[in-house]
Simulated assay, not measured.
Amino acid sequence: MSDLACAATVLVARHGATDYVETWFSDEGGWLSAEGRSQARGLADALRDRRLARVWSSDTSRAVQTAELVAARVGVAAQVPVLTRRSLREADAGDLRGQPFDVHRLHEVTDRWFAGDLDARFPGGESGREVVDRYAAELAAVADEHRGETALVVGHQTALSIVVPVLTGRTDRSRAHELANGEYAELAVDADGWRLVEDAQ
């Protein structure tokens, strides 16, 4: 990241609740449920007075739909109000893709991340450290783009819930701080680095 003489505010949010057709591990499917659309509207209402310069999003449909609902509801003035980035996707579960979905198989790896072992890896997929590095690089790029402004980034539960404490030096990385659907945390960054302004809202 370039030297941020002028601070940037980056709000990071988890997408709304999602319906899926497939019952296997995949990062491609899913669209907002009625509850998810309500959560996206609630997120927009919570941010209505924040004068968002732009909304950034994972390129998965559930995140994009959330981002577009927020941008439209708050009236983001940018010519392109939502920009998508593949680098904001959820952690890559590797060899689990295509296998029957079982949250316990995810937790075999992600529990280790929350316990501080970021070198733990999904076979054929990412380690926690790689997820943090990927997200940190994209968040830094967003901050560079929005010095003196506020931007929203719509991403995913596990990725955001490990990158936020790592970036901000938070020692408590338990699942108690995971973002719920439609929740956000506020980060600020300047030349001194990242800090957590507000926990999940």
Rank of each mutant, 00 (worst) to 15 (best):
Ala67Cys: 11
Gln65Lys: 11
Arg51Ser: 14
Ala141Tyr: 00
Glu68Val: 04
Val74Lys: 04
Gly182Met: 08
Gly94Glu: 10
Tyr184Glu: 04
Gln79Ser: 15
Arg195Gly: 05
Glu138Tyr: 07
Leu187Lys: 03
Glu183Thr: 01
Ala140Ile: 05
Tyr135Thr: 03
Val132Glu: 09
Gly128Trp: 14
Glu68Ile: 00
Arg51Lys: 01
Ala143Trp: 03
Asp172Met: 08
Thr168Ser: 15
Val131Ser: 02
Thr168Leu: 11
His156Leu: 08
Val55Gly: 05
Ala159Trp: 07
Pro81Ile: 07
Tyr184His: 15
Arg147Met: 03
Phe101Val: 09
Leu187Glu: 06
Gln79Trp: 00
Asp117Glu: 14
Leu187Gly: 01
Gly169Gln: 10
Val142Thr: 04
Ile162Tyr: 00
Gly169Trp: 04
Ala180Asp: 15
Glu183Tyr: 03
Asp117Ala: 11
Asp117Trp: 07
Pro123Ile: 04
Arg129His: 13
Ala72Met: 00
Leu118Lys: 07
Arg54Tyr: 03
Ala188Ile: 01
Val132Gly: 01
Asp172Ile: 13
Phe122Asn: 13
Arg73Gln: 10
Ala136Arg: 13
Glu145Phe: 00
Asp144Leu: 06
Ile162Thr: 01
Ala77Tyr: 00
Asp117Gly: 07
Leu167Ala: 10
Pro123Met: 09
Asp111Pro: 06
Ala91Glu: 06
Pro100Gln: 13
Asp190Arg: 11
Leu52Trp: 01
Asp117Val: 08
Pro165Ser: 12
Ala120Ile: 09
Ala159His: 06
Glu68Gln: 05
Arg175Glu: 09
Gly124Leu: 13
Ala53Phe: 05
Ala120Trp: 02
Ile162Val: 15
Gly193Ile: 02
Val64Phe: 02
Arg97Tyr: 14
Asp111Tyr: 11
Leu52Asp: 09
Arg175His: 01
His177Met: 05
Val82Pro: 01
Leu167Arg: 12
Ser58Glu: 05
Tyr184Met: 14
Asp92Gly: 04
Arg129Lys: 12
Ser161Thr: 12
Gly125Thr: 05
Val76Gly: 00
Val163Met: 09
Ala77Phe: 03
His156Asn: 10
Pro123Glu: 14
Ala115Asp: 15
Asp102Ala: 15
Thr60Met: 06
Asp133Met: 06
Ser87Leu: 09
Ile162Leu: 05
Gly98Asn: 06
Ala185Val: 12
Gly75Trp: 04
Thr66Met: 01
Glu149Tyr: 02
